[in-house]
């Protein structure tokens, strides 16, 4: 079906010519993510969004926990910290408070963020900590081979749920909003431009910002549930996602075969931990 002659015409180039090479640690490429995984697409969107904001590269730090998504920190050519499982947020909290010139981004998977790191997530949202959290949700623990996680849809199979997962999953936008986040959006890996725009909006904003990316995991989640390849999942997102800005997050649950509600659920202003504390302490101490 392919024309062999065409191949000759396509320019084959070196990795360092890629327009994003300056923001990637090209000496660590190719990355570990599987063929058809959406993590790289989300990362592309993040790099483009960062470039578009014009925020100096030196003033952005990325913190991540453990898992496939945790590896993001290792591929970005920024100050980057790969911490322990679930602890990206508290590490980032110290980093952001000690160095307020930094824009601190936490890149975390669903298991990392809302299972083992769930307590940190809700408390950081409550405090409106000045962090942007990108949650790559692939409904499973990919790196360890596809165990059920806090977002695994009801009835989905996993290596630790061979009969299907029958505990209720978290709806991350709802959890974030209920806990006090000030910017909450959800996109799939296929909504590249919208995702990029969302990241561009959230990056310079203050407060606790959460962007969830629904991401194909062809190797673990899709294989166990016979959902096909990464491309098949992208097609599934194409057919089954609904964009509804300002949607009620309670209606954004994700079922095995249901619709995926995407969009910006919330975008409000509220004093951040640092601003609120500094302002009120200054009043009491009579300082400037």
């Amino acid at each position: 079906m392919n024309k062999p002659a065409a191949h000759l015409e396509t320019a084959i180039v070196e990795q360092d010519t890629h327009p994003m090479a300056d923001l990637l640690r090209m000496d660590r490429m190719p990355h570990i993510w599987c063929s058809g995984c959406g993590l790289g697409t989300g990362l592309t969107c993040f790099i483009m969004a960062l470039k578009e904001t014009g925020i100096p590269e030196d003033k952005v730090a990325v913190v991540s926990g453990i898992g496939c998504t945790g590896r993001v920190a290792g591929y970005l050519n920024l100050d980057s910290f790969h911490t322990t499982h679930g602890r990206g947020i508290p590490f980032a909290t110290g980093l952001a408070l000690a160095n307020p010139d930094l824009r601190v981004v936490v890149y975390s998977g669903d298991g990392d963020l809302v299972a083992i790191g769930g307590n940190h997530f809700i408390h950081s949202a409550r405090r409106n900590m000045d962090l942007m959290v990108v949650c790559v949700n692939n409904f499973t623990y990919g790196m360890t081979g596809g165990q059920a996680g806090p977002t695994t849809p009801i009835s989905a199979k996993a290596s630790t749920a061979p009969y299907g997962s029958y505990d209720y999953p978290f709806n991350i936008p709802y959890l974030a909003i209920a806990s006090g986040a000030t910017y909450v959006a959800r996109w799939t890996s296929l909504h590249m431009r919208r995702l990029k725009n969302s990241m561009r909006e959230a990056l310079p904003k203050k407060g606790f910002r959460v962007i969830e990316i629904i991401c194909p995991c062809p190797t673990a989640f899709a294989r166990k549930n016979r959902l096909g390849s990464g491309l098949d999942l992208m097609k599934h997102y194409h057919d089954n996602s609904i964009i509804k800005h300002g949607a009620d997050p309670r209606e954004a649950d994700i079922d095995m075969n249901g619709k995926v509600v995407c969009g910006t659920f919330l975008d409000i202003e509220r004093p951040t931990f640092r601003d609120f504390q500094t302002e009120n302490i200054a009043k009491q101490l009579g300082g400037e």
Binding site: T83, I89, P90, T93, G94, L95, L97, A98, H123
Partner: peptide, 15 residues
């Protein structure tokens, strides 16, 4: 867990 991590983050932030 959060306490211990926050002080590590703060140290890398320069404090």
């Amino acid at each position: 867990m959060a306490s211990m991590n926050s002080i590590l983050g703060a140290a890398w932030g320069g404090w």
